[in-house]
């Protein structure tokens, strides 16, 4: 077969080039990684009718359907219209002009999430709901961004290895009268978290500097002396990445911010990207983009117009720690 296929265009349509010329893998978005199981029959149908009968649980939690032949792409796109509408338009309230031709862009990648407090006893919030709200801010945009949402500082969704990692934390409140001084919270904090609790005269004292906001103390407390403040708080980790050259773990940018702040900064992401990329939505890893702007400029632009809640903490500076598979990575020729 003689191929003349614009693979860039197909990639933007969420069909990824494969080893076999003329075959592609469709990546279907699942923002926040939870949807009704009924959608599986559609996924199965596409895989068995046009794909090679298999599906990959994409590393970004997409349904990835390999082995789709170029000539079937229109049919597939037509068939997945109902899925795109159900997920993007109905669940995420995304504004889309056209759902007939498949996904309009691959720019912002699927936002991954752990199951969060929909199920998990450690989860501090509903990760999927937040991911869906974020979807409305980032999709469909050609500017690249990868996000991951974790229900608690265990970070099962690896928020530390993505452009923006959002981690749910809880402000713990202590009821002195209800505490029986059993020390279970001390053990829990010691075993699972940051060792900030200790006992004094039969009650608990806390070094508030470094509470991870995990909620382990509340989970073990037999009397309900520790409870979570009902407001949901978040920690934002930025600039994590994998890659061949210099992977790195992300660093804390914001701590104890509210959902409004999250919406504000992610809402600013496109303008920030456009500015730094001179309005060309080329693929550049979020971490590299932040590096290109420099942390100070990034901070200024991403927090533009965002009202920080009084509990917020903002990183003054960030010291990245890269794994340098190529040495002298930050030393560049002058005129390049």
């Amino acid at each position: 077969m003689n191929h003349d296929i614009n693979i860039g265009k197909l990639q933007r349509n969420c069909f990824r080039q494969s080893k076999v010329p003329g075959e592609f893998m469709l990546q279907m978005r699942v923002p926040g990684a939870v949807i009704d199981a009924k959608h599986l029959s559609l996924v199965q149908h596409v895989a068995e009718t046009w794909g090679n009968g298999k599906f990959h649980i994409g590393t970004r939690q997409t349904f990835s359907l390999p082995g789709i032949k170029y000539e079937n792409i229109d049919a597939v796109n037509e068939y997945i219209k109902s899925y795109i509408e159900a997920i993007e338009v109905e669940l995420c309230d995304v504004e889309m002009d056209d759902t007939d031709k498949g996904y309009p862009t691959i720019g912002a990648r699927n936002t991954t999430a752990c199951i969060g407090n929909q199920h998990c006893i450690k989860g501090n919030f509903d990760t999927t709901s937040l991911a869906r709200k974020l979807e409305k801010l980032i999709f469909p945009s050609n500017y690249h961004i990868k996000m991951s949402v974790a229900g608690c500082p265990n970070d099962c969704s690896k928020a530390h290895f993505t452009d923006f990692g959002i981690i749910g934390i809880a402000k713990m409140e202590y009821d002195y009268g209800r505490c029986i001084g059993c020390g279970k919270c001390i053990d829990a904090c010691q075993g699972h978290a940051t060792r900030v609790l200790s006992k004094s005269q039969g009650k608990i004292i806390k070094d508030t500097c470094c509470c991870a906001g995990c909620g382990e103390c509340a989970t073990v407390c037999p009397t309900g002396a520790w409870t979570r403040n009902a407001t949901k708080f978040y920690r934002v980790i930025i600039g994590g990445r994998a890659g061949k050259q210099y992977p790195r773990m992300g660093k804390m940018f914001l701590n104890w911010v509210t959902e409004d702040v999250i919406m504000g900064i992610i809402g600013n992401w496109q303008d920030f990207s456009a500015e730094i990329l001179e309005h060309k939505p080329i693929y550049l890893h979020g971490g590299h983009l932040i590096d290109r702007a420099g942390y100070d400029r990034f901070k200024e632009m991403i927090l533009e117009g965002v009202e920080l809640n009084p509990e917020s903490e903002v990183a003054e500076r960030i010291y990245w720690a890269e794994t340098e598979y190529r040495a002298n990575i930050h030393v560049k020729p002058v005129n390049k």
């Binding site: 407090n117 006893i121 989860g123 501090n124 919030f125 509903d126 749910g168 809880a170 909620g215 509340a218 989970t219 407390c221 309900g224 409870t227 979570r228 009902a230």
Partner: peptide, 11 residues
């Protein structure tokens, strides 16, 4: 409200 042992559960 939301003061239960697990997040978003009541006490």
């Amino acid at each position: 409200e939301k003061r239960g042992r697990y997040s978003d559960t009541d006490l």
